[in-house]
């Protein structure tokens, strides 16, 4: 794995390498190099299996982290390719030409995180959330609890007590 990373470092701007376990490594690549990097990995280095493509919302850094989990079935190693993109104008090049199934992932990311992949087939079609009119729900600033409280009505009659406060009320209310 270390050899491969050294080799990749010569050709690409590879950063933040983390050797998570024997057969799994994570690294960060700049957005503009990402697709050529991934293509290189697929076509040259044997990372032919796209395991997942997903995003992590680092709202505090105003960034989305796209994670392309690539697997080399021959060598049985994984490479987690992180691409950090701007959260405000979330857009990324599509990789559906490399893996057919990437289009599904990208469609989901478009819907759940609001990350656009121009050119990806049916990327703007509703995937899971038909008729959704709120912000993309997997963004960190979407509050599921608040949403459900606004959307559904709570069951009446539920009331709880904090043990410490309740004991104060009962045992030493004057203080």
């Amino acid at each position: 794995m270390k050899d491969l990373i050294q080799k990749l470092k010569k050709r690409f701007d590879v950063n933040d390498v983390v050797y998570q376990k024997d057969n799994q490594t994570y690294l960060t690549i700049a957005k503009d190099q990402a697709v050529s990097f991934i293509t290189h990995l697929k076509d040259v280095e044997g990372f032919t299996h796209l395991v997942i493509l997903t995003a992590v919302d680092w709202i505090e850094d105003n960034e989305f982290q796209l994670t392309y989990m690539l697997n080399n079935p021959g060598k049985k190693v994984d490479l987690g390719v992180r691409v950090l993109i701007d959260r405000e104008e979330a857009e990324m090049e599509s990789i559906h030409h490399l893996w057919k199934t990437a289009a599904t992932y990208q469609r989901e990311l478009r819907e759940m995180f609001g990350i656009d992949f121009p050119g990806s087939p049916r990327v703007n079609e509703d995937f899971i959330l038909e008729g959704w009119d709120d912000i993309p729900p997997y963004r960190r600033d979407f509050d599921t609890k608040e949403y459900s409280e606004q959307t559904y009505y709570p069951r009446p009659g539920r009331k709880t007590h904090d043990p410490a406060e309740y004991m104060k009320k009962k045992l030493y209310p004057e203080e």
Binding site: V18, Q20, K21, Q24, Y26, V51, I52, T54, V56, T67, M69, D78, G80
Partner: peptide, 20 residues
């Protein structure tokens, strides 16, 4: 802080959790 991907073979193929 960390991230990992853990997989297992389920009846239908590769099942995995990517956890951050």
């Amino acid at each position: 802080r960390g991230e990992t991907y853990v997989r297992a073979e389920c009846t239908r193929g590769e099942y995995g959790y990517y956890t951050v």
